[in-house]
């Protein structure tokens, strides 16, 4: 059975080098933070548990969910990973799946690995866990809360990831070259349907697991142990951090975008000239294409600095809000 290509994977060439660098940095920070969070816990248990769950999600992505067309639906698994392992180990598990997909199957771009991690591991797993935890508070019965939470989290994370990709795509290419509104509408519409499929699949899996081993999702005592973070205060902090990361990353771009449109089109004219010059001269200097886009690079740097400072603030906030407890509070649910 050949590996099925996922429509959600961003390939090299979709995004410009600056956007790749910026998303890569945000993803590296998120993964680094997840590693840091897991280091305090029982790290020797984390390795087999996360590795096995990552392998299971990878294998689970192979299962076909037929939709009557030549293409079939597949599990993405970010929310599932977050619910089983908690946000940090879940983020790592999905990251491992993406890394293996790249380095074992050449699925997904190399420079866009950061963007893929941002979409599926950070938004999908960490954001998904945050949404599930918040939704579960509204329900008395933990089973119902878990299932409804998985539905909402799956759909929201898929659509949010696609919206973020549209914005990254917009930032990668000059504004005049394509109709942003049409692409955005197409992307979000398609991914709304994909999100519905993901929500149904995840809910079905969660309900099956709840029937057999509810402790895996609700109690999380023996299976995942200390890798789950305790308390909803930390969870909301995580959700806020993710949202703020995305906002901080995009805010510098957004503020520049409106007044920078004419600048970009002028710059586009410049880079056209650079292309022509390149074709005539010897090919030892392939960098002129960067020449017109230095503004983009400096804006990315500003966005990343802003994201990092917000992350530090959120760390302090998270520490102030909830106690530094490694034990899972199953009674809270």
């Amino acid at each position: 059975m050949a590996r099925n290509w996922s429509a959600m994977h961003v390939q090299d060439g979709y995004l410009s080098p600056e956007v790749c660098a910026a998303t890569g940095l945000v993803a590296a920070v998120a993964v680094g933070y997840s590693v840091y969070k897991l280091r305090d816990g029982v790290s020797d248990r984390v390795v087999p548990l996360t590795g096995m769950t990552a392998a299971m999600i990878f294998a689970g992505q192979m299962v076909n969910f037929p939709i009557g067309l030549p293409v079939s639906g597949h599990l993405i698994g970010g929310v599932l990973a977050g619910m089983i392992l908690g946000p940090w180990a879940g983020c790592l598990a999905v990251t491992m799946v993406l890394v293996v997909q790249r380095f074992l199957f050449s699925d997904g771009g190399l420079f866009t690995l950061g963007a893929n991690i941002l979409h599926m591991a950070v938004i999908g797993s960490i954001g998904g866990y945050a949404i599930v935890s918040i939704v579960r508070r509204f329900f008395k019965k933990p089973n119902v809360g878990a299932i409804v939470g998985s539905v909402v989290a799956s759909w929201v994370t898929v659509v949010a990831a696609s919206a973020l990709f549209c914005l990254e795509f917009r930032l990668s290419h000059p504004a005049g070259a394509f109709e942003f509104r049409n692409i955005f509408a197409m992307m979000v519409a398609i991914h709304s349907l994909i999100g519905v499929g993901e929500a149904l699949i995840t809910a079905a899996i969660v309900s099956y697991v709840l029937a057999q081993r509810p402790d895996l999702i609700l109690g999380q005592t023996s299976a995942s142990g200390d890798t789950v973070m305790a308390g909803v205060g930390r969870v909301t902090a995580a959700g806020i951090v993710v949202a703020l990361c995305i906002g901080a990353f995009l805010a510098p771009f957004k503020s520049n975008l409106d007044d920078g449109l004419e600048h970009v089109s002028k710059v586009q004219g410049f880079s056209e000239l650079a292309h022509n010059a390149w074709a005539f001269f010897a090919d030892y200097d392939a960098i002129p294409v960067f020449g017109g886009q230095w503004q983009g690079l400096s804006v990315s740097v500003a966005g990343v600095v802003g994201t990092l400072s917000v992350l530090l603030l959120a760390l302090a906030f998270g520490r102030a809000v909830s106690p530094r407890s490694k034990v899972v509070e199953a009674g809270r649910e």
Binding site: T53, G60, N64
Partner: peptide, 24 residues
């Protein structure tokens, strides 16, 4: 078929976690 496929993944999940406990 969807229900069945989801059940398979759920079963794989439970078995994997049990296997990871044994391997650990």
């Amino acid at each position: 078929r969807w229900h069945n496929a989801a059940q398979m993944i759920g079963m794989l999940l439970i078995r994997s976690l049990g296997r990871s406990e044994r391997v650990y």
